[in-house]
Design a protein around this nucleic acid. Sequence first.
DNA 1: AAGACGTGGGA
DNA 2: TTCCCAAGTCT
Length: 376
Amino acid sequence: MSPPRKRDTAPTAPLLPPERRERVRAGLLDGYDRQKRDLPWRRTRDPYAIWLSEVMLQQTQVATVIPYWERFLQRFPTVEALASAPLPDVLAAWRGLGYYSRARNLHLAAQEVVARFGGRLPSTAAELLTLPGFGRYTAGAVASIAFGESAPLVDGNVARVLSRLFEVEGAPGDRAREARLWALATALVPGERPGDFNQALMEHGATVCRPENPLCLLCSVREECLAYRHGRVDELPPAKVRAAPKRMTLAVAVWAHAGRLLLARRAEKGLFGGLWELPAVEVDDDTPAPESAARLSQALGTPVHVEAALGTVRRQLTHRALSLRLLRVTGTTHPTHAPAFQELRWCTPQDASSLGMSTAMHKAFEAALDAGALAP
DNA sequence: AAGACGTGGGA
DNA sequence: TTCCCAAGTCT
């Protein structure tokens, strides 16, 4: 008989010893109970309102979200109200918040909640994950905060806090790193008040364990922090490498008729999907005005010609450098539908103010008016 | 599985 | 001015 085979790797340390787990939990929860910010969605237990806050907070700062959240809830107070609203109305309420696919998916999910769950949001992360716009983070957040499930969550804040506490190596996006962070979050969350614990983790990252100038001297889990102990707080986690923004030029039709401007609603997918705009087509940076007119004619399904260039509006997005080239155009017919757009509408500035429109296009719209687009 | 998808605020 | 990025999801 051969001797029992030895393991070929050294035994790994347990992910998280119980005593250390309890100290980390207690420290974070204490900090939260003492210092948590008074945010409006922490004053409600309505799962729909909590869901809405989590969607709005994706990649968006708290101070930006607050007024949108309050207005949106007034306009669409329940899942049913949201589900039965037309998408353009939902996008109008989202105007200026960015990442508009969030609003489209929220609307779709509300309709599914009505159709599949009788208007009641399901209470587990696993079920929530089946709805549009619910990824791993949002499913864990809503399940734990609204329903008290011990579901883990990892967002940018949590990733930073756990990276420092447990000295997790690797860059954002690294598979092994993500797996380790989720494993740590999963190991930490079971216990009292899972929703509060998850919020404590995020709150700690937002207010104490910040990306720059973290407040280690005020930290409630400093004694547990490996990065602090090893003087590595400033180097964990490593910054993510970001691709250089790509240039994108749009030829924008400024078409006035009888005191109104022609507006178009964009296709549902992609950049500014489903939003209203001054009709625009993508062109090369060096496209001359007559060719831009030809492209716009095709998109609008009726011939237009350029009367004047009204200037260019530039806008910097995360992954794109946008140039909106305003062209005053005219044509002999005045279309009410067009091949490249979902809808066309001739609008007064007042009409336009209530439509869902990106901030980029809103700036272009204002610039067109400033340039005298509707001047007599 | 990288890349697309917005915006406003702070350094 | 310019750069970075903040409670992610989808394809």
